[in-house]
Design a protein around this nucleic acid. Structure first.
Length: 510
DNA sequence: AAACGGAGCAACCGCCAGTGC
DNA sequence: GGCACTGGCGGTTGCTCCGTT
């Protein structure tokens, strides 16, 4: 196999390796190690060049090579890392035990690249393809492609659902003004025909949910019903598929990473709106907006539609935009100012200039409003969002993250690309600002990795504490040892946040 | 059954960075 | 600093397999 040799060297064989050659190579390396690849063929009795021997060994004969199909998790990691690292196959391979760069490269070119194209994503930039010239049916039918931000999974789901029953799914001209900010974009989507499908779903009519399922849409992570079950423990959540799960640290979804590409992103953020905040009086009514504030997600960054049912507490569905990020608020605040803050609202404009502000609970309305007097300038935000500054959290475990950081941030261009890549992928980062100590919250940090930490060692109410909780829970959902790696992959630009946090989580999609 | 074409993938090529002299 | 050598990496090739016509 392989192409014909372009320059035959005297007496050196090229082309496919025979079993006999493989045996010789394996036997020699097992006994002597490979040493100098240049001299190896001679010593091993092979009529090959050293380079060919090295390639054969590293790509095929090495004992720790993992053969066979790629798992969904591996696919997920490859896509995520490719979004961040590009065609740096060896770097990607270093995060996949037993996989070679060559194998990953081949798998990308033959499978994953096509899959992204089918999803309407440019396999190079991982951004949406433009709808006009691409000729892709989905894009031309549903003009989401013109949006300025990453097409996120929810949008695809809306499209899929809308396709059979809602032909007039044009949200580009609906009287909502000309702004193209993501929040408005989602608002328009929400008010569209397809959005109505979801709004109707709020009724939780079994027959209607069945209809939604029958049109091929996975809405399991989209609609959530919440009820505070008792004073001390968790909120009971019921998603649209009728499954019940318990907070804290539980995802509605329990699906494979590959299927998560279509919806899990939503489910996690929905959880963020619940269960984060324990009412000090143990009230049965969940104030979802307050919950949003507590997790650092500003309501204006989400399309929200809520219905209050006295018997069930609040029922809220929303979808936040993709460009949320973590900021270390201590860099911008001092003293008592922090106590006024209930949320962060921030985004990154195309020019790399961070913008944002602090949010405060408005007790009169129950909503969160801008806290203008504390809103930092764009310059301050830009400085705060500098990855080595605010996103490089100081932590005793920092040494464990250095290697990854070095790889990600080897130069400024790469560093910026990495940061932007995360945002472009719709990766959301949350910070549990001033959350009460008994709160339960998921936090997705940006320092690239995290160590597994015993529960008793978890710091309360700080960034790394939440991070560790996540990792711990995640590790328990997997096999313990993979938690750290998986977390690392998540933090390196993953498309979605996925997997269940508790192994006994009800599978909503079953 | 034969021809065809696409998919999959092992293997090669050229380039580059690191190292030692 | 310049050169040669080595190993590593990403892009590309072309053979084989397999499904379709």
């Amino acid at each position: 196999m392989g192409r014909a040799p372009c320059c035959e060297k005297q007496g050196l064989k090229k082309g496919p390796w025979t079993p006999d050659e493989d045996k010789k190579l394996i036997a020699y390396i097992q006994q002597h190690g490979h040493g100098s690849w240049r001299s190896l063929p001679k010593h091993a009795g092979l009529l090959r060049c050293g380079k060919s021997c090295r390639l054969r060994w590293t790509n095929y004969l090495r004992p720790d090579i993992k053969r066979g199909n790629f798992s969904s998790e591996e696919e997920h990691i490859i896509i995520s890392l490719h979004a961040l690292l590009g065609n740096r196959w060896s770097s990607i391979a270093s995060h996949l035990q037993g996989r070679t760069d060559n194998e990953i490269k081949n798998y990308w070119n033959t499978h994953l690249k096509k899959r992204l194209l089918q999803m309407g994503l440019d396999p190079v930039s991982h951004k949406p393809l433009m709808s006009d010239a691409s000729g892709m049916g989905m894009c031309s039918k549903f003009p989401f492609g013109a949006a300025t931000h990453q097409r996120i999974p929810w949008e695809s789901s809306v499209r899929q659902c809308a396709a059979p029953s809602h032909g007039n799914f044009d949200i580009t001209d609906d009287g909502f003004g000309t702004e193209n900010q993501s929040s408005d974009y989602f608002l328009r989507a929400w008010r569209s025909d397809a959005g109505e499908v979801f709004r109707k779903g709020l009724n939780f009519s079994d027959s209607y949910l069945q209809q939604l399922r029958s049109c091929g849409l996975d809405i399991s992570g989209f609609l959530v019903r919440a009820r505070h079950t008792n004073k001390n423990s968790s909120y009971e959540l019921e998603n649209a598929m009728g499954s019940n799960v318990n907070m804290p640290l539980t995802l509605v979804e329990n699906q494979s990473p590959s299927s998560a590409l279509s919806s899990v992103d939503c489910s996690i953020t929905q959880h963020m709106s619940f269960g984060l905040h324990h009412d000090s009086k143990g009230s049965e009514v969940v104030n979802t907006i307050e919950g949003l504030g507590k997790c650092g997600l500003h309501q204006n960054r989400a399309v929200m539609e809520s219905a209050h049912e006295p018997s069930m507490g609040s029922l809220t569905t929303y979808k936040p935009v993709a460009s949320e990020a973590v900021v270390k608020q201590e860099d911008l605040l001092s003293g008592g100012e922090a106590s006024m803050i209930s949320a962060l609202d921030y985004d990154n404009h195309e020019n790399g200039n961070w913008d944002g502000g602090f949010m405060q609970d408005d007790k009169s309305t129950g909503h969160i409003c801008d806290l203008d007097e504390l809103t930092p300038s764009s310059l301050q935000w830009s400085q705060a969002m500098e990855i080595d500054h605010s996103l490089g959290f100081t932590d005793p475990k920092q040494a464990a993250t250095d290697a990854i950081k070095k790889e990600m941030c080897s130069d400024k261009d790469n560093r910026d690309a990495n940061l932007n890549g995360c945002q472009d992928l719709g990766h959301m980062f949350f910070m549990p600002l001033l959350a009460p100590e008994d709160s339960t919250c998921l936090d997705f940090g940006h320092d690239g990795t995290a160590q597994l930490t015993a529960e008793s060692e978890l710091p309360k109410c700080n960034m790394l504490g939440w991070q560790d909780q996540f990792v711990s829970a995640e590790a328990s959902a997997h096999d313990g040892s993979s938690g750290e790696l998986y977390w690392s992959s998540l933090m390196k630009g993953t498309v979605v946040l996925t997997t269940s946090l508790q192994p006994n989580c009800t599978n909503a999609t079953a």
